[in-house]
Design a binder for these strands. Sequence first.
DNA 1: TTAGATATCTCCAGAGACTATAGGTTTGGA
DNA 2: TCCAAACCTATAGTCTCTGGAGATATCTAA
Lengths: 138, 138
Amino acid sequence: MLSIGDLSKRTGVKVPTIRYYEQMGLLAAAERSEGNQRRYERQDLERLAFIRHARDLGLDISAIRELIALSQHPHQPCGNADRIAADHLKSVRDKIEKLKKLEQELARIVSHCDGDHAIEDCYVIRSLSDHGLCDSEH
Amino acid sequence: MLSIGDLSKRTGVKVPTIRYYEQMGLLAAAERSEGNQRRYERQDLERLAFIRHARDLGLDISAIRELIALSQHPHQPCGNADRIAADHLKSVRDKIEKLKKLEQELARIVSHCDGDHAIEDCYVIRSLSDHGLCDSEH
DNA sequence: TTAGATATCTCCAGAGACTATAGGTTTGGA
DNA sequence: TCCAAACCTATAGTCTCTGGAGATATCTAA
Ligand SMILES: [Zn+2]
Ligand SMILES: [Zn+2]
Ligand SMILES: [Zn+2]
Ligand SMILES: [Zn+2]
């Protein structure tokens, strides 16, 4: 039986975060010691590792909740799980696209000024005032 | 004199968001009508457009607050403004790098399953359970 | 002029995913 | 047995809005 601190050390998930996951319904409410402290088993360790890895890959809580629910029906087809992953991949790609546009505008803006002007002539300030100077929408 | 709704229509910033910016100190407290409603002038319109554009480029409120403060001293050198923009560019680039790593892992994971297995054999579920299957840290 | 429709006001709560604090209790080792 | 460390609950704060409730103001048209 592991304490919440043990679980934390083994998974790298902070103690308050573990409690938070329990509250959000990702982890089942743990058994308790006589003094009301949480006690965990190997199963919980595995589930928390799953959650942590999914979070590291950027999945949000509700997607993880769905994936956990799916994984409790091992004989069902995995279409929904795959769809969640594919949707997430798409959203990551969309974010990258948006950030690349920002990167281009910002790089352009930054390259036009060397930090050696007066504010009133600074290209950074002027481009922020006027989207017309931008090359793209964003 | 513009009402808050007029200002909202002209800048595309929602009414509660304008009030929020005032509260955060990005917009000066507006003049009021006899009935206590906010009334704006051209200057406010320009500043709100500046804020909006800066937000669209991903700058956060405190960076925008600094930029506004700087822009009130038109004869000072612009080094600080340029630094804020350059720092932000760097943070955008860092985010892109992280997302690209996620994208690669997710693409690999998604490509290994066609949605046609049982959950217990699904590569998506298995890779979430085991970071060892990943190619990179993330 | 007056009714009714629309816009505005303030204050408060919620979103997401934690993180931190305060004040109290349990546990484990010397 | 005693004390420090770990644990408990409850609550508030982070960030940038967004939406709602309930009250008041403004505008338009009859
Ligand atoms: Zn400059
Ligand atoms: Zn622009
Ligand atoms: Zn699958
Ligand atoms: Zn991994």
